[in-house]
Design a protein around this nucleic acid. Sequence first.
DNA 1: TAAAAAAAGATGTTGTTACATTTAATGTTT
DNA 2: AAACATTAAATGTAACAACATCTTTTTTTA
Lengths: 149, 149
Amino acid sequence: MGIAEDIRQKKFRSEFSKAIVNLIYTNSWLNQKHISFFKPYGLTTPQFNILRILRGQHPHPSTVNLLIERMLDKSSNASRIVDKLEEKELVIRKQCKDDRRAVDVFISEKGQQLLRELDKEMEEWEAGFNKLTEEESNVLNTLLDKLRS
Amino acid sequence: MGIAEDIRQKKFRSEFSKAIVNLIYTNSWLNQKHISFFKPYGLTTPQFNILRILRGQHPHPSTVNLLIERMLDKSSNASRIVDKLEEKELVIRKQCKDDRRAVDVFISEKGQQLLRELDKEMEEWEAGFNKLTEEESNVLNTLLDKLRS
DNA sequence: TAAAAAAAGATGTTGTTACATTTAATGTTT
DNA sequence: AAACATTAAATGTAACAACATCTTTTTTTA
């Protein structure tokens, strides 16, 4: 069942226009899946993404600016997401020594533990709905990169 | 510049996992573009999408349920988006004759005029950042459809 | 046909996003 | 060095999304 049937729209202005619609629709579909996956862990998707960036930097700290730069969804408010993670004791905030305007954010031991737990679950979960071959995923990546270029 | 450089992440669990990240990142990139495109017209993206569905049905009405069914982003609240469009006099709400629980929503003449104006602009705008060939768009559509299947 | 179940849409609540402004610290210029 | 500009992050706010609940009407079933 293609996008045309899914949203019951027969005609599109162009194949590219259809791809744009398809991208938004597929993202929304995926987003729903992510929300229900993360819910049992008390995390939202942006919170998870920030935790992953922090782990990638660990044991080095990340400033809020670095988080914004690398976030998948640039629009969301990194500072307040870090607030939420700090409340849950998944991250630690320290004033940066070199630049007292900046804040060093670290993933806590508890945060790392949570991510380790999630890693395993997520791998199985992702594999569970992977309908693409390695080659197809590769082509998809190439096309998405080209779309943004 | 591929997704790996964009979010400065060297390694991915799998090519599929990378494609998932790429999809979210590309959607966010596109969303930013859409927001700034619609802003001068005083529309949000979900409002525009609902208007388009209404036009597709015209002169037949759409119930709120039909709108929800066909919306790209299922999560948003169709009833309240219709509120906003009604405030701007772009749509008309009437009680449905056959089922008094339901509401018939129509696009107004003003709404149709706005869409006609947008059609032209949008075509140029979309063409302006279309980096894909017809064939590539087609492959992208096929892969996204398969991803959701 | 009366009672229970289901459906359509509206509404209340809480959390988040989008965007502007603020505060404090650092850089730059003359 | 004082004045101005820039930067990092936090905060205020209005609008929106996510999710549950409510009201009204229709459908089902005992």
